[in-house]
């Protein structure tokens, strides 16, 4: 049996990608790019799930990854619908200028 790459390496990579996504959500002003950064974070979580599933010899990690993908599909459909509706009513989607809900 080939010695597999340690799980800690995969977890560190997952954390790195997650933080890339979190940084993007915090700094980008285009909501579509923010949505893509959220996808990046979900992907990172998936990588962690699958790596830990392999670590413990359990299919549960891969199952959770599949459920996360299904939820991400629903989330991106709703998010893009909100962005399209926003663009129709406001003619802009810059999140700094869409602040009617701000106190």
């Amino acid at each position: 049996m080939i010695l597999p790459v340690p799980t800690a390496h995969y977890m560190a990579l997952s954390v790195l990608i997650f933080c890339c996504g979190a940084f993007g959500v915090a700094t980008r002003r285009n909501p579509i790019v923010m949505l893509m950064c959220i996808e990046l974070m979900l992907n990172a979580a998936n990588l962690g799930f699958v790596a830990l599933g392999r670590h413990f010899g359990d299919t549960g990690g891969q199952m959770l990854a599949i459920f996360v993908m299904a939820v991400a599909a629903g989330e991106v459909a709703i998010g893009l619908a909100i962005i399209v509706a926003l663009f129709r009513t406001r003619e802009t989607i810059d999140v700094d200028r869409v602040d009617s809900l701000r106190l």
Binding site: T27, R28, R29, N30, I32, V33, L80, I83, V84, F87, I93, D94, V95, D96
Partner: peptide
């Protein structure tokens, strides 16, 4: 959606 809204680069960069 990006191409439908056709925002180009003006849609807001990085803060």
């Amino acid at each position: 959606t990006i191409m439908l809204l056709n925002l180009g680069v003006t849609g807001g960069g990085i803060r």
